[in-house]
């Protein structure tokens, strides 16, 4: 894992600290002329992002998630932070009527969204579906019991959570304007003295230069959708968002949904839920009364 933090001066009173975490380019914009302070805040941000990544990675055998996923049905006691994340996942599961489910990750074993036309075997999907369902696990805080074969995956909220945490950590130490951007999921505390942050969202078209520019001053913003992760079947293009009821990708969803809300976590959730609505994504976001930008 690359553990470098680099600092770049973007303007007289603006520094950008960059590092890599959660397989994404991460950037923290800090409204200060003080290079040492900016570097210190940059290191703090990276340390926090790496801490969350290490703690919740599915790939590291010592992570909290691996401990739960390899518990073979035994009750695992979790710490306060993990408990709040599981609590949050529970509420999201209930609120979304079961469509947002952190146990749905195993379905990825059947689908490879690499632009290919290979269709998975329906029996494989059905076999995997029997290992999906948040209602099958037992959560009595602070103990979680996950049936054998099931897996938890915080991939859908981890990055947004890290963005909000890093912003919180930095605002406790620094009063100037801050923008935390982890691979397009971002949060800001306020606009710099020079005016709102200008955020570019990549259009999922062939022309990568075309960007949609948005003004943003505070709160969170997140994007769901990926130009490169899709599958095409009989001319029908399926995105990488899977419907837990069928085990199949949601059809008719926009290529990308960007939502602005109070925090990055909330924006990310709304964007994911909108994707799950398929054709009704725009309608859903309209009903929610949040600022959103959908690209089809």
């Amino acid at each position: 894992m690359n553990r470098d933090v680099s600092l770049e001066r973007r303007a007289v009173k603006l520094h950008a600290a960059s590092f890599t975490a959660m397989s994404s380019p991460c950037e923290v914009l800090i409204e200060t002329a003080d290079e040492a302070l900016a570097l210190q805040l940059g290191h703090l941000s990276a340390a926090e992002a790496w801490r969350i990544e290490t703690k919740y990675s599915r790939y590291l055998p010592d992570s909290v998630i691996s401990r739960i996923n390899n518990s073979h049905g035994a009750a695992v006691e979790v710490d306060t932070e993990t408990a709040s994340l599981i609590g949050f996942a529970t509420q999201c599961y209930e609120l979304s009527g079961g469509s947002f489910d952190v146990t749905s990750g195993v379905l990825r074993k059947a689908w490879r969204f690499d632009g290919s036309k290979a269709l998975p075997d329906q029996s494989h999907i059905e076999q995997l579906l029997s290992r999906v369902g948040f209602d099958k696990l037992d959560w009595s805080p602070p103990h979680i019991s996950l049936p054998t074969g099931m897996e938890l995956d915080f991939g859908g909220i981890g990055k947004e959570y890290a963005v909000d945490r890093v912003l919180g950590l930095l605002t406790a130490r620094f009063e100037g304007a801050l923008l935390v951007n982890f691979g397009g999921d971002l949060a800001a505390n306020k606009a710099p003295a020079t005016g709102p942050w200008c955020v570019g969202v990549e259009r999922p078209d062939t022309d990568k230069q075309a960007r949609m520019l948005l003004d943003f001053s505070r709160g969170g913003m997140a994007t769901s959708g990926d130009t490169h992760r899709y599958i095409e079947i009989d001319g029908q293009r399926y995105g990488h968002i899977l419907d837990v009821r069928t085990g199949w990708p949601v059809t008719g969803a926009p290529r990308s949904v960007t939502v602005a809300a109070g925090s990055c976590v909330e924006a990310g959730l709304l964007a994911t839920l909108a994707m799950l609505q398929g054709e009704q994504a725009e309608g859903f976001l309209g009903e929610q009364g949040v600022q959103h930008w959908c690209l089809r």
């Binding site: 932070e81 979304s96 919180g168 976590v265 909330e266 709304l270």
Partner: peptide, 20 residues
């Protein structure tokens, strides 16, 4: 829609409070 949005806000609050 109102139920969902409020619920989501509340859940987010609860999650981020411990970090704050």
């Amino acid at each position: 829609p109102a139920e969902l949005r409020l619920g989501l806000m509340a859940a987010t609050c609860a999650l981020l409070v411990q970090s704050a």
